[in-house]
Amino acid sequence: MSYWRKPLDWDKINIPEGKIHVMEDQCKGCGFCVEYCPKDTLEMSDDFNLKGYHPVVVVNEKSCVNCQLCEVICPEFAIFVTLKNNYPATERIPETRKGVKIGES
């Protein structure tokens, strides 16, 4: 059963994938990026960095859509994201939708 219809330009849409760069020893573990990342790509680490903070870690880079929200909200200039790839939307179906057949039923 599917409650959403397939957009007409589904095969033309590209969803970007980001490459995340963390300057681990510059992070002060405030959690802003983890909280506001729309894709749950980041988490706080249990380990300590050089300055004794729990830094951010990338737990699921594949999910990153290069929105750069983490980069702009970070008060430490400790994380930034570059464009890794532009995949066709059809290849970047979110995990939560994996079971749903698009455009069917």
Binding site: Q26, K28, P75
Partner: peptide, 12 residues
Amino acid sequence: MPHIWCPGCGIG
């Protein structure tokens, strides 16, 4: 960097 501002300070 790192700058002097505290963790979670909005200045950065």
